[in-house]
């Protein structure tokens, strides 16, 4: 079985604070994996290492056969821009832009022409039940709407891996489940691999499998990372 993205024995500390103490995880292409674990256990740090946002102190990150941990900052940043997508707990939309421009942003940043980028962005509004909100500013959206816009932005460029850190953490149960339903449907349609951090079991149940992080290590049931 090929592996889409993998962390091998990753160690990471914030100054004196150890966050990861030898974390390993391997994710198959198109797989949706939930990373669970108590607050402070290292879930977000692991996600950031996998996504090339943080560089491990030791250990390896492999994506598509390449060592992400030994790339230059510029290489990692183009990897994030061109091949990864992101959704975080609080949408983190750009307040000055319209929601359509927010969704189009990853395309614009990777050099797609504006008209084409906006056309693609509009397609996502329909898909996610957001028609009519294209010209609003993020400040004029409800939390659930903003999170769907953030999801559209995370997926618009057809990323190979979507990193989602508590994407439903700020939403009520029903809205959160709608966002998860859309996320899973869209990811499956385009074959996107999803790494989903959540501490909510009902959210994790949308994934194909879960791993739990404890004290900076990954404990994966039924599958021993080799």
């Amino acid at each position: 079985m090929t592996i889409a993205i993998e962390a091998r024995d990753v160690v990471f500390s914030f100054g004196q604070t150890p966050a990861l103490r030898g974390a390993s995880i391997a994710v198959d292409p198109g797989e949706i994996v939930a990373i669970m674990g108590a607050s402070g256990s290292g879930k977000s740090t692991l996600l950031h290492c996998l996504a090339g946002i943080l560089v491990p102190d030791s250990g390896e990150i492999l994506f598509d056969g390449a060592r992400v941990d030994s790339m230059t900052e510029a290489q990692r940043s183009s990897l994030r821009r061109d091949r990864f997508g992101f959704v975080f707990q609080f949408g983190q939309l750009v307040p000055e832009l319209t929601t359509a421009e927010n969704v189009a942003l990853p395309l614009l940043l990777s050099g797609t022409r504006r008209a084409e980028a906006l056309r693609k962005a509009y397609g996502w509004f329909e898909r996610l039940g957001l028609e009519g909100l294209e010209q609003r500013r993020p400040g004029e959206l409800s939390g659930g709407q903003a999170q769907r816009v953030a999801l559209a932005r995370g997926l618009v460029a057809g990323p190979e891996v979507l990193f989602a850190d508590e994407p439903t953490g700020a939403l009520d149960s029903l809205t959160g489940e709608q966002v998860m339903d859309l996320l899973v449907t869209a990811a499956r349609e385009q074959g996107t691999t999803v790494i989903l951090v959540t501490h909510e079991p009902r959210v994790a149940a949308y994934a194909d499998r879960e791993v739990s992080v404890r004290d900076g290590r990954v404990n994966a049931p039924d599958r021993i990372a080799s």
């Binding site: 079991p201 009902r202 994790a204 149940a205 949308y206 994934a207 194909d208 879960e210 739990s212 049931p221 039924d222």
Partner: peptide, 9 residues
């Protein structure tokens, strides 16, 4: 936990 999550899936 994993049995529970499997059922939840």
């Amino acid at each position: 936990r994993s049995a529970h999550l499997q059922r939840m899936r």
